[in-house]
Amino acid sequence: MPKANTINHLPSSPSVDKVGVEERVARFQSRSIKNHAKMQGLKMVLSMIDLTTLEGKDTPGKVRQMCFKAAHLHDGYPDLPNVAAVCVYPSMVRLAKSIVGSHGINVASVSTAFPSGQAPLEVKLTDTKYAVENGADEIDMVISRGKFLAGEYAFVFDEIAAIKEVCGSARLKVILETGELITLDNVRKASDIAIYAGADFIKTSTGKIQPAATLQVTYTMLQAIRDYYDETGQMIGMKPAGGISNAKLALHNLVMVKEVLGQEWLDNKWFRFGASSLANDVLMQIMKTDSGIYQSGDYFTLD
């Protein structure tokens, strides 16, 4: 089944019961990840990170340091993967690409008047084209939450489809900013709109709004991806972003991906973490798992 080209082809979204979701999520959290499974999981987490800086005060210097870290997570330890991508504003794409491009690390750029999305479509298209032309491999767009909450689903759908068109070969991640959608029913509906309108990935949040990537929200979005796969056979990626700052939470996200979607999604082609401080906690856990000794932040570089 091809992607719908208008919202008229969108199937109705099932309702979501939050209490039931919370119970399911508690079950994921009760999974005990130990020994080799933990080590394998932690390395997987590292490989799935979109190392991110999205601040008004971002400078070339800050971006340069982060990009270096992306390719040198902890050089003292052998066989660590690189992160999947660095995620920056469009103005920093060219710089980032010049540093990480040669390491097989992607450059992702936010666009569409991130983080609010409150700009006309032409501005958003220009923003996106600029990022793509500067070398972005991935585009992280935001949906128009105001329009969504006003019930203008067709507007949201068409906007995503239009952005997808100008992405070219860059993969499109669609940020729902779930903290502003409030209910899981809305999260599910927005996920379906994004997927059917052409998203390659759906993503929880910008990191600017709390709550961000709660397990409940991520679970709801994973179910949307699962249903789409069951309907069409096409895989969609998932990126929780914002609030995942420790290894344990990251591992529980992987548990969810494994149990809801399956092993095929345990790959940075299909699953990412948007995070700025997760990598160091994962590194510390890797060292701890390896040595049995609890670690200090002083021994892991900040960037």
Binding site: M44, P81, D267, N268, K269
Partner: peptide, 11 residues
């Protein structure tokens, strides 16, 4: 750049 991590089983 995909990292093939498939087949992750709980210990």
């Amino acid at each position: 750049m995909s990292t093939k991590n498939n087949n992750w089983e709980y210990a």
